[in-house]
């Protein structure tokens, strides 16, 4: 019920009543640290979620667009709506805070997109686990929108040190059955009583704990690090390609 009310009030008001208001910015900063920093970084510099200090957002740069995404979420991404948590003033305070920290120049990335694309689909083996525009495997996160979803710094870290920040739901689970066979896959479900995994062949498996010899979850990525297998130049090329993936035209 609350989000509907919010959806109504956003149309009525297209300007941030707290723009530049010091108290509101401070309150917004407090809220940001609590609700937003786990994905967007403690100072909005980006993490698993995009860098919000650049002042340019994939959802639109107007205050109303930013408001809408905070209240209702960004479709097709992991960004949830916070309309049930905050009233419209609260959302506007967050917008005021974001405006106060935005305007940082976008990081310059030199690299060759065409080389990066080739690396992705051929040499690197990314396609064995990831998927872009309906092509590839479902073992790892779908990368169709990854240029919108992740900051550059996060993507670089993910390529070099995949364990540093694991995408939720992609833990590695290993099950050893009573006859000794070992099943390794990504976590679909894991609880006190059972586990559900998808293996590299995209088969689903489900077991109760009492049916198997062991069941273990590791907070480790199944992805290898590419810091050594790719040259710094190749990494840049791959990053240019990945940051260009914004959900349009990736239909190969």
């Amino acid at each position: 019920m609350v989000p509907l009310v919010l959806a109504g009030s956003i149309r009525a008001q297209d300007k941030n009543p707290f723009h530049g208001n010091k108290d509101a910015i401070e309150a917004g900063r407090g809220m940001f640290r609590i609700y937003c920093s786990p994905c967007h970084g403690i100072g909005a510099e980006g993490g698993r979620g995009p860098d919000l200090t650049l002042g340019s957002y994939s959802v639109g740069n107007e205050d109303t667009a930013v408001f809408r995404v905070i209240a209702s979420g960004a479709k097709g991404t992991e960004m949830p709506g916070f309309g049930e948590r905050f009233d419209s003033d609260g959302v506007w305070r967050l917008v005021a805070y974001l405006r106060s920290v935005s305007g940082k120049p976008a990081p310059k990335l030199t690299g060759n997109r065409a080389n990066g694309e080739k690396l992705y689909w051929e040499k690197s083996g990314c396609v064995a686990c990831h998927r872009i525009g309906g092509r590839g495997s479902r073992m790892g996160p779908d990368l169709t929108l990854v240029g919108r979803q992740r900051s550059l710094a996060y993507l670089r870290e993910a390529l070099v040190d995949p364990d540093a920040s694991l995408t939720p739901g992609y833990n590695k689970v290993t099950i050893v059955t009573k006859d000794g066979s070992k099943i390794t896959g990504v976590q679909k479900g894991y609880d006190a009583f059972s586990a559900q995994v998808m293996d590299a062949q995209e088969n689903y498996h489900s077991y109760f704990r009492e049916e198997v010899r062991s069941m273990e979850r590791e907070f480790k990525s199944m992805m290898p690090g590419y810091g050594k297998s790719l040259t710094p130049r190749e990494l840049d090329d791959l990053l240019v390609y990945l940051t260009s993936l914004r959900g349009q035209g990736e239909n190969r």
Binding site: D23, A24, E26, A27, R29, G30, M31, R33, I34, S37
Partner: peptide, 17 residues
């Protein structure tokens, strides 16, 4: 985390996360 935070009536006053 700790952040210096001014108190504003009725608003979050947690001073970080």
């Amino acid at each position: 985390f700790k952040t210096a935070q001014d108190y504003v009536d009725g608003l979050w006053y947690q001073a970080s996360t």
